[in-house]
Amino acid sequence: MDIGNLISALPGAAAQGLIWGIMAIGVYLTYRILDVADLTVDGTMATGGAVCVMLTLAGLPMPVALLASVAVGMLAGLVTGIFHTIMGIPAILAGILTQLGLWSINLRILGMANKAISVDKYNLLVSLRYIPRTLITVFIVILLVIGLLYWFFGTERGCSIRATGANQAMARAQGINTRFNIVLGLMISNGIVALASALYSQYQGFADVNSGRGAIVIGLAAVIIGEVLFGKLARNFAVKLFTVAMGGVVYYLVIQFILWLGLNANDLKLISALVVAVFLAVPYWRAQHIHAKSRKRKEAV
């Protein structure tokens, strides 16, 4: 329990948190803006890295590898979107189907369960060997992603996607093709998650078919932590997205702290699941509490 160990581990945790913050922005778009719980991301969070590592190993320049990762992620979103809108499968199930299918695709891309890439031999953007550079790079990527999304969701098309998530009946009455917008939203979200995945595989120095397992839970945790801690500060859409990314950082700092306390790393997923369950329950409990209070007040009168 040397405090020095904890402090020296924090920058690395923050870097991981920032990368997962990008992923959480993707989750935010579906969960909050589109009002769809998309489980595709558990697959996409491995696919983006697999594509990026294989293309980099094949000698392609980094921007090409990153763009290809995003494109493949968007393709995964497209598949879930088609399952949901054209084939009428409930969104959660559609995501699970794509996620399951992606596991095989990820194995095909990698050719094995795990593929390493060395930061010494390849010109990687980020790496756990160079934490300060990683922090700065990922931070810049986050700002770029937020800037792009802020612009897009202010456009006519972006506004119509927000309307689709807010009220589908209203959206259709205003001539908005809600099915097209749901597919587009899922594609954008999964593109962002694949970008996070591509960065994460570079950071770790390998791509792994299992690296997406439970990703949706971490993404939701980041979204909720961001809202609970900084929700009052954020009115503006760009600031909201930033707080979601910061939620990812807080999540990883807390995890690091728990590990430092001596907890078994294998129990992490259990704890994450419980923590997210509790945070998801808080708004529900709060609403019930307010309801009960107002009823008591009425009875007292």
């Binding site: 456009t155 098309r157 506004c159 309307a163």
Partner: peptide, 18 residues
């Protein structure tokens, strides 16, 4: 924003400001 959505009913929604 609601009114702006309605003002564009029947038009193509592109990348101009909403």
């Amino acid at each position: 924003e609601n009114l702006a959505l309605a003002a564009r009913r029947g038009q193509r929604r592109g990348l101009k400001w909403g």
